[in-house]
Nucleic acid binder design. Sequence first.
DNA 1: CAGCAGGGGGCGG
DNA 2: CGCCCCCTGCTGA
Length: 273
Amino acid sequence: MRNHVNHYKCPLCDMTCPLPSSLRNHMRFRHSEDRPFKCDYCDYSCKNLIDLRKHLDTHSKEPAYRCDFENCSFSARSLCSIKSHFRKVHEGDSEPRYKCHVCDKCFTRGNNLTVHLRKKHQFKWPSGHPRFRYKEHEDGYMRLQLVRYESVELTQQLLRQPQDGSGLGASLHESSLQGILLETVPGDPGPEEEAEEEEEGGGGEGTALSAPQDTPSPVIHVVNQTNAEGQREIVYYVLSEAPGEPPPPTELPSGGIMEKLEGTAEEPKVQMM
DNA sequence: CAGCAGGGGGCGG
DNA sequence: CGCCCCCTGCTGA
């Protein structure tokens, strides 16, 4: 009870879950090809009922969803379209809220920012992590989440076993953790302009990656590595348990959400810290 | 070409 | 369910 970490690790990938049931759920979705829910009108099949219902909407001729707002005749064939319409038209929420943390360009949708990050800044997501996560900041903007909350066990395993002899292929970053420069950032959320021996290229636009201000004192491990292709990768690991302090109520939801992202930049202007 | 937006699908919580 | 993925067509610079 002293910490909120995920204790149950998937044997097939680096996912960890807080409960056996959630791990079972994960394995069913992620590592099973069973698609017991089949569409009666086409060859489509999927893994749960919700997705099947979403698919069935695509077979209906007329829009299944209508806007509830007074005198609004907007209709759409998907629920998310209705919701985005409502936010945009009836709640005046039309300002783009997804902000690129590198060049401060704003986008209306997360996936459009994703395209921008990949094409303009050569970001990518590591294997086993199929998407970017965006986090809402104090200023209301959604920005790429550059840290991931890991369990204590997971992080210690990572730091302790740089290479696995068995080659089971299930460890965190496989055996690619050789020649790592490891740097720990103290909990002080001050301006951590900790220049390494590497020179910074472009310079000016470097938006600082700040530790979540609302967390007490997260222990952040910054792993700087070079992968097989010679590209430089930076991986952030954040322990969700700050020693001697209770987990914050605002962030770090009950399960000890873990997020990990690594950004890579092929240019020598790695600025994410 | 970059950005926006609709539609449909995947999947973690 | 919510968030993000991809694919695609449209639009303006």
